[in-house]
Every structure is written in C-alpha cells, then in structure tokens.
Computed example of a mutant assay.
Amino acid sequence: MADIDEATRTELEAAAFRRLVSHLRKRTDVQNIDMMNLAGFCRNCLSNWYLDAANEKGVALDKEGAREIVYGMPYSQWKELHQNEASAEQQAAFEKARPHE
C-alpha cells in the first residue's frame, strides 16, 4: 500500500465517497433491490453507515437526514420519483441472497 499520511488518506476516502454518492444520484435507473442482489448493499445501507459514523462522532443526525445526504433529496421524494415496484424475480433473488440472522 502507498505511504499516505492519515489526513491525506481521509481526504481521498472522502473524495471517493462523494464521487460514489454523486454517481448513485445520477443512476436513478439502478434500483436499490438490484444493488442489494448484486453487491449486498444499497443506498439505504450507505446512509445507515453514514449515520453510524455520525453517531460514533457524536454528530446530531437522524436516519432521514442521513438518507437525504445520500439521495440528494428526502427519501420519500426519491421513492416517488425513481423507485419501481420490485418484481417477483427481484424479490426472490433478494430473499436468497440476503444474510439471514
């Protein structure tokens, strides 16, 4: 691994995160269930991870606020504009692939 100081590493990780979020905001055609089925995470997971990090740092943020950071708008608005009903095939793939606790 490259010899990168901690501050630079954090800046690079933040830049990569911002680019990922920007990409996901543009790719509204990609449904969360498809992301879950293929990669095991989705926009909601990413917003939950963001919320977890905020909580660890004592930053006042709630679930909806974290989702708005990832989606670029209130989650309810994004769902109304972009979310399609999951097909039976998508739902079956999700049930097969998701971790069972």
Rank of each mutant, 00 (worst) to 15 (best):
M1G: 15
M1L: 03
A2K: 11
A2C: 10
D3E: 11
D3V: 15
I4W: 05
D5W: 01
D5G: 09
E6A: 03
T8L: 11
T8D: 10
R9M: 13
R9I: 00
T10C: 03
T10I: 09
T10R: 12
T10G: 00
T10N: 05
E11K: 10
E11P: 03
E11W: 06
E13V: 02
A14N: 04
A14C: 04
A15E: 06
A16R: 12
A16V: 08
A16Y: 07
A16D: 06
R18E: 08
R19S: 04
R19I: 05
R19C: 04
L20P: 00
S22N: 11
H23D: 02
H23W: 08
L24H: 06
K26L: 13
K26C: 07
R27S: 10
D29T: 14
Q31C: 07
Q31K: 02
Q31R: 09
I33H: 06
I33K: 10
I33P: 12
M35K: 04
M35L: 14
M35V: 03
M36C: 03
L38K: 14
A39Y: 14
A39R: 06
A39S: 01
G40P: 08
R43S: 09
R43V: 12
C45P: 01
L46W: 13
N48L: 08
Y50M: 13
Y50C: 03
L51W: 03
D52M: 13
N55E: 15
N55K: 14
N55V: 06
E56M: 13
E56Y: 01
E56T: 02
G58F: 04
G58K: 04
G58I: 06
V59A: 01
A60P: 04
D62N: 15
D62H: 09
K63A: 05
K63P: 00
E64D: 14
G65D: 11
G65E: 15
G65P: 07
A66K: 08
R67V: 02
R67L: 15
R67W: 06
I69Y: 11
I69H: 02
I69A: 06
V70A: 03
V70R: 04
V70I: 15
G72A: 07
G72V: 08
M73K: 15
P74M: 07
Q77G: 01
Q77V: 15
Q77S: 10
K79S: 09
E80P: 00
L81M: 15
L81R: 14
H82V: 00
H82K: 08
H82S: 06
Q83V: 11
E85F: 05
A86I: 08
A86L: 02
S87H: 01
E89K: 14
Q90H: 05
Q90K: 00
Q90R: 02
Q90E: 09
Q90N: 00
A92R: 15
A92P: 08
A92Q: 15
F94V: 05
E95D: 06
E95T: 08
E95R: 13
A97E: 06
A97Q: 09
A97C: 05
A97G: 06
R98Y: 04
R98M: 14
R98V: 10
R98S: 02
R98K: 14
P99H: 13
P99N: 07
H100V: 07
E101H: 11
